[in-house]
Every structure is written in structure tokens, then in C-alpha cells.
């Protein structure tokens, strides 16, 4: 009984945080499903891929992989490069995902950009069970993504809606979370390192391959400037 009440309160606390993700995931998920549909794949493709991969950018790229000649090694390396940023999410969530029992497996499985953002930045009230809160954030996000891409795959391009620009909801969400982090830091070394490294690498390597070099530069700078960053304090 008590367990049930605790779960319900965690769900109620988690849901509001996921509303922007609902908007973004339904829009992007449907776009993805429609893209697969018009590329000649049945709805079970986007549905199963969203269930098992649960990573938007790779799922989009996977469509062209499925249409190209079979090249498993190339697919593997490409997928690793696109998904490498999860390594950072894992390191950042090592402490937070501790002592969450069986839920830990699912939390790690579902660690996409948006789930990471909420679970990393949310101020979970002390009377709410942390494990269940993060579990519901992950579960709701995946439900939004899978249902969106399945609907897109079912209706295909029959469905027209003037939602141009709705994908900006993700940019706005990351901007807000970035601002919140900015406010928490006393000095802004790490935030500036993140922005600076990304912009410089984007200019040098271009939009399709700047993430891995960006991560390497961030890691290098955080290592070199460990002393001043730690002394500045205010890290979450």
C-alpha cells in the first residue's frame, strides 16, 4: 500500500518535467515514423527500433543504413560515433543511479539525451523516492518516443500538420537546463568549456562529425584545468 503511494507520488512529481519532452518526442517521433514509412518500411520497424535503440539521431541515420548495401562493421563504427556522448552521461550519472536496485538496469538502458537532462538536473523533492522518480522519467520518455514513431509509421505522410519549428522545443529545453547549471556554478569554467569546444569543433569538423572531437577536447580541458575548476566549486 505504502509502496503504491510512493510510486504514485514519484510519477506525479516526474510527469511535469517530461511535458516538453512529450511535445518534442511526439513531433520528432512522428517525423521519424513518417520518414520510415515513405522509405518503404512497415510501422513495426520504427516501433521496434524505438523500443530497442531508443536514440533518435541514430534511428534516423539507421534508415539510410537499412537502404544501403549490408555493411555491419561500418554500421557499428558509425553507431558508436553517434552514440559516444552516452559515455559522458554514464560518468555523470554514476553517483545518481547508485542504489536504485533493479531499476538501475532500465535507467541505464534508457539513458538518452533528454532523460539524462532531466534526471541529472531535476531537483527531486526529499519526500519523493529518487529511484522511482528517475524510473518514471525514463519510462514516460520512452513511451512518448515509441508511440510517436509508431503513429508516424502507421499514418505515414497522410498526416499533414503545420508544426514547422516544433522541434525547437528540445533546443529550448537544453537552453533552460544550461541556464540552470550556469546559475549553480560560481565560476563558469565548465559551461564555457562545453560551449567553446563545441563551437570550435563544429567549425572545424562540420555538423556530421564534430561530437567525438568535441568530447575529446572537453575531456582534455577538464583534465588540464582540474585544479582551478575544483577550486571554483559550485559543481553539482
Amino acid at each position: 500500500m505504502q509502496q503504491k503511494g510512493m510510486r504514485r507520488r514519484a510519477l506525479a512529481a516526474a510527469f511535469p518535467y517530461t511535458i516538453p519532452i512529450f511535445a518534442g518526442f511526439w513531433f520528432l517521433g512522428m517525423t521519424y515514423g513518417i520518414y520510415m514509412n515513405v522509405s518503404g518500411f512497415g510501422f513495426w520497424y520504427p516501433m521496434l527500433m524505438s523500443l530497442t535503440i531508443f536514440g533518435g539521431s541514430l534511428e534516423f541515420v539507421a534508415v539510410s543504413m537499412l537502404l544501403a548495401p549490408f555493411a555491419p562493421l561500418q554500421t557499428f563504427l558509425m553507431a558508436l560515433m553517434i552514440q559516444a556522448r552516452h559515455l559522458f552521461y554514464g560518468i555523470a550519472m554514476l553517483e545518481k543511479y547508485k542504489n536504485t536496485g533493479w531499476k538501475r538496469f532500465y535507467l541505464i538502458f534508457g539513458l538518452c539525451d533528454e532523460t539524462f537532462s532531466i534526471n541529472c538536473a531535476a531537483q527531486i523533492p526529499p519526500d519523493i523516492d529518487r529511484g522511482w522518480f528517475m524510473f518514471f522519467v525514463t519510462l514516460l520518455d520512452q513511451i512518448y518516443w515509441v508511440s510517436g514513431s509508431t503513429i508516424g509509421g502507421l499514418v505515414g505522410s497522410l498526416f499533414t500538420f503545420n508544426t514547422e519549428g516544433l522541434d525547437f522545443v528540445m533546443t529550448a529545453m537544453f537552453t533552460v537546463i544550461f541556464l540552470e547549471q550556469w546559475r549553480k556554478e560560481k565560476k563558469h569554467y565548465t559551461a564555457l568549456i562545453g560551449i567553446g569546444a563545441s563551437v570550435v569543433c563544429l567549425l572545424i569538423f562540420g555538423p556530421d562529425s564534430f561530437l567525438v572531437p568535441t568530447m575529446a577536447v572537453i575531456l582534455g580541458l577538464l583534465t588540464i584545468f582540474r585544479k582551478p575548476v575544483e577550486r571554483a566549486g559550485g559543481l553539482i
Binding site: R85, F88, Y89, I91, A92, D113, F116, S117, C120, A121, T171, F174, T175, I177, F178, Q181, W182, E185, H188, T190, A191, L192, I193, G194, I195, A197, S198, L211, T214, M215, I218, L222, R226, V229, L235, I236
Partner: peptide, 11 residues
């Protein structure tokens, strides 16, 4: 130290 840098990267 990573989260603030990551959110900058995600933007």
C-alpha cells in the same frame, strides 16, 4: 564537472 559542459554541447 561534465554536466554543465554537456548541456553547452547539447545546445
Amino acid at each position: 564537472a561534465l554536466p554543465a559542459a554537456i548541456f553547452g554541447m547539447l545546445v
